[in-house]
Design a protein around this nucleic acid. Structure first.
Length: 484
RNA sequence: GGCGCGUUGGUGAAGCGGCUUAACACACUGCCCUCUCAAGGCAGCAUUCACGGGUUCGAAUCCCGUACGCGUCACCA
């Protein structure tokens, strides 16, 4: 039997990090097997919660991440349709629900919802634990037929055995056992003819041949109920892989409601999809090898369900930044340059070599968005205080700086080759000639041509990028400022 | 409240009864490198694994209890 997993999101808004991680794990579990199949199924049985455009966000996110599904609404497959609302129309869920009734796993319920709600709130107010004992369970077949005939509104509820226990093995949490008496007789088919998530999910997982169910651990406590349905139908129960939550902090899950970053927010903030995916893979799962940088393909190789943890993990933006920086730094210059070109151009309009700028920025930027803000000094030479020349570690002060700068000006004025290598060779000789340390010459120079206390790159790199005219112009301005 | 699950440093975590005086990584601190900032290198950072009992020659690792946290008890998914 081929290994099949599915990612089954509801199109209700943005793609959250926790959700994406579930998708990733489902993908990895499938792809770990060379024959494994990864399916995308849209669960839109709650017509009231649909958000326009949400399905596209799902497609786009999956695509940007490289989580390519083998079957799904947009790519087809032999088990379609892959959108639940389309399946509803075929009457499929209702048919299975009726079949379940004949097998004793469910029953019609004609109770008014408000009556149940009233009972519930009353019991709960008294501090008791409410469990609906549906009188409809005891209706005679004639009575049921009579009401159905009369067109009475109904739902179909699951029928739970009144005694015994149900247990199952979860790949992450191990064996779980619960008393059947604690299980709720939940609604399977709503009065509008739509199945509830619980029912549609079980039916579709079975019909689509899902062998491994990967989902959040919030479903752990309802899994026994699902298993009872599988058993009533006589179907094979899938392998379960419940994943612990991704937390915002000790107490709260990461969620859109708290305004926490979604995948697209992170991309907009300058994080690479590859880095985001790499990072979230590490939230709740740990590799056997001692390394942390993984491409998707490498993740497929390294992934192992046995190493998924059981406790929730807090999303750490600092570590994501670091990882993103690692991804950025390991790119070859050509790819890096084409990636960051727009960010550089956003800050630098002047006629400078973008590629060289990319090179000095590559080792310093952890996110794309921080690039423009490091580059402002290229276009405008900012005004600065002479006090900046006082630097203890560099052993410089305005006097030393002025002397060094004059020597630089003299040497640079006659320099023809403005390549970084040439400038390096030439400028590195100056300190010795002046009887100064490197920092006493180059630190003031860098400051003199950038006006910034810190810059991405040193005096030589920046001078080379600025070019002869601009370097000398700024240098002379600075000498003037220092001489005044 | 019932039921289920969880609890190793600020964070992600390794650990599966002796090899642990608890890996590795982020963050933090210090040093080195160095023309600033980064990057890189090195070092430091839990004598202790929520707490209390027990089993054992030996426990972070097994068992029980307590505390705390999370989840779930919808015609939401």
């Amino acid at each position: 039997m081929t290994l099949r997993t599915r990612f089954a999101p509801s199109p209700t808004g943005y793609m959250h990090i926790g959700n994406l991680r579930t998708a990733l794990y489902a993908y990895l579990v499938a792809k770990k097997d060379p024959e494994g199949v990864f399916i995308l199924r849209i669960e839109d049985t709650d017509q009231g919660r649909l958000v326009e455009g949400a399905t596209d966000i799902i497609y786009n996110t999956m695509q940007q991440c490289g989580l390519k599904h083998d079957e799904g609404p947009d790519v087809g497959g032999d088990y379609g349709p892959y959108v639940q609302s389309e399946r509803v129309r075929s009457g499929l869920y209702m048919d299975y629900a009726k079949k379940l009734i004949t097998r004793g796993g469910a029953h019609y319920c004609f109770c008014d919802q408000s009556v149940i709600d009233e009972q519930r709130s009353k019991t709960e107010a008294e501090g008791g634990s409410f469990k609906y004992d549906d009188p409809c369970k005891y209706l005679s077949q004639e009575e049921i037929d009579r009401r159905l005939q009369a067109g009475t509104a109904f739902v179909i509820r699951q029928t739970i055995p009144t005694e015994g226990t149900t247990s199952f093995d979860d790949e992450v949490f191990g064996q779980i056992t619960v008393d059947n008496t604690t299980l709720d007789e939940q609604v399977l088919m709503k009065s509008d003819g739509f199945p509830t998530y619980n029912f549609a999910n079980v039916i579709d997982d079975h019909l689509m041949g899902i062998t491994d169910v990967v989902r959040g651990m919030e479903y752990l406590s309802s899994t026994p109920k699902y298993n009872l349905i599988y058993e009533a139908f006589g179907w094979d129960i899938p392998r379960y892989i419940h994943c612990p939550p991704v937390m915002k902090d000790e107490h709260n899950k990461l969620s859109k409601r708290n305004g926490d970053a979604s995948f697209q927010d992170l991309v907009a903030k300058g994080y690479l999809p590859e880095a985001i995916l790499n990072y979230i893979a590490l939230l709740g799962w740990s590799p056997e090898e001692d390394r942390e940088i993984f491409t998707l393909d490498e993740l497929v190789q390294a992934f192992n369900v046995k190493h998924i943890g059981t406790n929730g993990s807090i999303f750490d933006p600092d570590k994501l930044r670091w990882l993103n920086g690692m991804w950025l730094r390991q790119m070859d210059l050509d790819s890096y340059y084409s990636l960051v070109k727009p960010y550089i151009e956003q800050a630098v309009k002047g006629n400078f070599d973008g590629r060289k700028i990319a090179a000095i920025v590559q080792v310093r930027a952890n996110t794309l968005n921080e690039i423009p803000e490091m580059l402002g000094f290229f276009d405008t030479f900012p005004s600065y205080e002479n006090d900046l020349y006082n630097n203890k570690k560099m052993k410089t002060n305005p006097e030393v700086a002025l002397e060094s700068l004059k020597a630089c000006e003299e040497a640079l004025a006659v320099q023809e080759d403005w390549s970084e290598e040439a400038l390096h060779g030439m400028l590195m000789e100056l300190p010795a000639k002046l009887g100064r340390k490197n920092g006493q010459v180059l630190f003031p120079l860098r400051l003199a041509i950038t006006g910034m206390a810190t810059t991405p790159g040193g005096a030589i790199e920046i001078a080379s990028i600025l070019g002869k005219d601009e370097t000398l112009r700024r240098l002379r301005l600075s000498i003037g400022q220092l001489s005044a």
